[in-house]
């Protein structure tokens, strides 16, 4: 790790009823890093992200943003503190226009002054959001909606961007666009925590990738492991 931790999760436990979905989870994301979190269906990846943004309560443990605990805060407070989540299934507002979706992204922004400059590079990164500005968001294709969802999260000017399976159900060319964008996003100073099912691509892209099964982190992989398919498969099986 080469930077100050921006996001730290310590000994996190999350339960649904009596069933633990996340167990003694610890992870650290340094400033300017891209960190991956992979694992099979039901491993607890989304639950981890939901706990970070305050959508589900933690049973115990701690979550810190720039050293200060955000545990137990409301989702809107955490969003305004600088964490943006691109949720699984995109969750764009289908009946609103593309522009209105982007304007909603501005709500969490604390310093409103340089919004235009940010909007500039975000539209450059995802030209579709500029092109289809006035369109109803629900009429966009799945790939375009995913780009809108990421753009909407970015206009908030977050310190940390959390993405929950952004490549799910997308055509290969769009997957390339999304993965390519993450590098640009990092270069803009945004720290990235990427939850994915595309294990190999994630390991290759991220500075570090945690492998999660059954609510626990089993292993940490580096880009050097990207071609070691057997090791990745073994990590998935270790449950």
């Amino acid at each position: 790790m080469n930077a100050q931790p921006v996001l730290e999760v310590d000994d996190l436990w999350v339960h649904y009823g009596t069933v633990p979905a996340v167990r003694k989870l610890g992870l650290t994301v340094g400033g300017g890093e891209i960190v991956g979190l992979i694992g099979p269906n039901g491993a607890g990846k989304s639950t981890t992200l939901h706990a970070i943004v305050g959508l589900v309560p933690a049973r115990s443990g701690d979550i810190r943003l720039r050293g200060a605990s955000i545990l137990g805060r409301k989702p809107e407070t955490i969003a305004r503190a600088g964490i943006s989540l691109v949720p699984e299934g995109r969750r764009i507002f289908a009946q609103l226009t593309v522009e209105e979706n982007l304007r909603l992204g501005l709500v969490a922004r604390t310093g409103h002054n340089d919004a235009d400059r940010d909007l500039g590079w975000i539209e450059e990164l995802f030209p579709v959001v500029r092109e289809f500005r006035a369109r109803q968001a629900g009429t966009l294709s799945g790939g375009q909606q995913q780009q809108l969802a990421i753009a909407r999260a970015l206009v908030a000017g977050p310190d940390v961007l959390l993405l929950d399976e952004p490549s799910l159900g997308l055509a290969p060319t769009i997957v390339d666009v999304v993965f390519g964008a993450l590098t640009d996003i990092r270069e803009r100073g945004v720290t990235v925590l990427l939850v994915e099912q595309r294990a190999q691509r994630t390991v290759a892209l991220a500075d570090r990738t945690y492998v999660m099964t059954n609510g626990e982190i089993r292993m940490t992989l580096t880009p050097a492991d990207a071609d070691d398919t057997e090791r990745i498969i073994a990590a998935y099986m270790a449950s």
């Binding site: 409301k74 969003a79 507002f93 609103l96 909603l104 709500v107 969490a108 922004r109 909407r152």
Partner: peptide, 10 residues
């Protein structure tokens, strides 16, 4: 339309 997502946006 979607309160949860709205809150995620602040």
């Amino acid at each position: 339309m979607d309160f949860r997502t709205a809150r995620l946006l602040g």
